[in-house]
Each structure stands twice: as structure tokens, then as C-alpha cells.
Computed example of a mutant assay.
Amino acid sequence: MPFINIKTPEAAFSRAQKAELVQTLTSLMVSYFGETVRPHTMVLIEEVKDGGYGRADVVFTLPEAYRATD
């Protein structure tokens, strides 16, 4: 069973964008492994709260302009 785990900043994607990600990534797995994996492909989108991630000693927050509107 293919398993795809995506971590994104909280509110970075709308529900429609998340649904599109799930469909697109599932189709990608099908293109590699064949149609038999479609019902068994798991796509998990985890949202990380602002300030809960960073790089090189810098803690990130998502700017308001980049927040999705549902």
C-alpha cells in the first residue's frame, strides 16, 4: 500500500487544494504501480501549527498573504 505523508504549515491549503493533492498524488502512484493500488493508496496531509517548524535556527510562521481561504 503506497503511503504519502505531507507536512504543511497550518492553513496553507484550502480544502479544495487538499482534495486536489490527494487525487493528484494517488494518480501518480497509479501511474507507477498500476490501477490496483488506487483503493489502497493513503495520502496524509498533516498541518503544523505556526511556529512549530523552522530551519537553521529560524522559526517560521506563515504570512497572512499565503494563508488559504476555505
Rank of each mutant, 00 (worst) to 15 (best):
I6R: 03
L28C: 12
P2I: 04
D57G: 06
F60H: 14
A68N: 02
A16K: 13
D70I: 03
K7V: 03
Y32N: 05
P9M: 11
D50W: 03
A11M: 00
A12R: 12
A68H: 04
T69A: 08
D70S: 09
Y53I: 01
V37Y: 05
A12L: 15
H40F: 13
V48R: 03
A65V: 14
S14F: 07
Q17W: 00
L62P: 00
K18A: 04
Y53K: 02
V43D: 02
V30S: 07
A11W: 00
L21M: 15
V58A: 11
D57M: 10
M29A: 15
I45K: 05
Q23F: 01
G52H: 10
E46S: 12
T26F: 08
I4R: 00
V30W: 09
V59F: 04
E35M: 05
P63D: 06
P39T: 06
L25F: 11
L25D: 02
K18F: 04
M1E: 11
P2E: 02
A19D: 15
P39A: 05
P39C: 04
E10G: 00
Y66V: 00
P2V: 02
I4T: 05
G51A: 08
K7P: 00
Y53Q: 02
R38A: 15
M42L: 11
T8I: 15
E10V: 05
N5M: 09
V30I: 15
T41Q: 09
R67W: 10
V59K: 12
T8C: 12
E47V: 09
L21H: 05
K7S: 13
L44R: 09
V58I: 15
I6S: 01
T24R: 13
D70N: 14
I45S: 04
I45G: 05
G54M: 02
P9S: 14
V30L: 10
I6T: 03
T61F: 09
T69Y: 03
F13C: 09
M1V: 08
E64A: 15
L62E: 01
P2G: 03
E20W: 08
E64L: 07
T61E: 15
A12E: 12
M42C: 04
F3I: 11
T8Q: 07
H40R: 10
R15V: 13
G51P: 02
V59G: 02
N5K: 14
V37M: 04
G51Y: 06
V59Y: 03
Q17P: 00
T36W: 06
S27Y: 00
R55C: 09
E35Y: 09
A68Q: 06
R15E: 14
A56N: 14
T26W: 08
D70G: 10
T61Q: 14
G52C: 07
V59W: 04
E46G: 09
T24P: 00
F60P: 00
K7G: 06
T69F: 02
I4C: 01
S31H: 07
I45L: 12
E47G: 10
V58L: 12
A68M: 11
G34Q: 05
S31L: 05
Y53F: 12
V58Y: 13
A56L: 11
E35F: 08
P39W: 07
K18M: 12
K18Q: 11
Q23W: 01
Q17A: 11
L28Y: 14
A11G: 01
R15D: 15
E64D: 15
A56T: 12
E46C: 02
L28S: 13
A65L: 12
L25K: 05
L44K: 09
V37H: 04
R67Y: 11
V59N: 05
F60T: 02
